[in-house]
């Protein structure tokens, strides 16, 4: 992805000295990251390196042991539940397993966050917003289907539509191409880039799918031993002779 974009000075997400442990397992250890407006940062790391823990700390699903996570200048660990809910309207989250509500149809899945935040909207407006989100991911015909009737790629697109429906300005993607075939994975990666341009979002993307990383990343952060081991564009890191960095690109 082209990295010739000029970013605003103030980062939309700023993480400094973040620490998170589970028992004796120090998953994040003084981790630092800044995300600029309109930027797409990919956090690369081995399985179990703490990538998902990182974005769950950003969205407030996990509480960090120490350190600072600032989203639009607000310290996430210090936010009240109400403030956290408001912050979550601005920050979308795409789960690795999609996390679509099995008991609800696609329409109900998409209406669910809308009804909670924009509950004064008429039924017609809700329907228009749902159809608009589904058209963005190319699946308007699935509106009355249940998640169980959809393929893996379709479920991922619906989950993406649900994430986009509140029009967040930041999106956190947790391994968006895991479990998909290479063709569908490439389609999803291209869709993420297209939607990012269309909605002008900033995003942090967790992945170890190098094709997805190549397509989507403006900047790559390598997470090793809980720290930001290296960072740079795809081309910069690919040229590196560092043994740890090379193993991701070989």
């Amino acid at each position: 992805m082209s990295d010739s974009i000029t970013y605003s000075k103030d980062p939309v997400i700023s993480i400094s000295n973040l620490k998170k442990s589970f028992g004796n397992n120090h998953v994040l250890n003084d981790f630092n990251l800044k995300l600029q407006q309109g930027e797409n940062v990919v956090v690369l790391g081995k399985s179990g390196s703490g990538k998902s823990v990182l974005i769950k700390c950003i969205i407030g699903l996990l509480k960090p042991d120490s350190g600072s996570i600032s989203v639009y200048g607000e310290e996430v660990p210090e936010l009240s539940q109400e403030a956290l809910d408001l912050m979550r309207v601005k920050v979308g989250f795409l789960f690795q397993g999609n996390a679509l509500y099995d008991s609800m149809s696609v329409r109900e899945n998409l209406e669910f966050p809308l009804r909670r935040h924009w509950n004064k909207q008429s039924k017609q407006t809700l329907n228009e917003l749902v159809m608009e989100a589904l058209e963005h991911v190319g699946l308007p015909h699935t509106v009355d289907m249940k998640p169980g009737e959809l393929s893996g790629g379709m479920r991922k697109r619906i989950a993406l539509a649900r994430t986009l429906i509140l029009k967040p300005s930041i999106i956190l993607y947790d391994e968006p191409t895991t479990g998909l075939d290479p063709i569908t994975a490439k389609e999803i990666s291209n869709l993420l880039v297209q939607l990012q341009k269309e909605f002008n979002t900033s995003s942090i993307l967790i992945s170890h799918d190098m094709n997805c990383v190549k397509i989507t990343a403006n900047r790559i952060v390598l997470l090793i031993d809980g720290k930001c081991y290296a960072e740079g564009t795809y081309e910069e890191l690919k040229k590196s002779n560092d043994i740890y960095i090379k193993q991701f690109f070989d």
Binding site: I59, F93, F95, A99, Y101
Partner: peptide
Amino acid sequence: QIDAMEVSG
């Protein structure tokens, strides 16, 4: 899915 509800506010 419970986490998804939480992040959707």
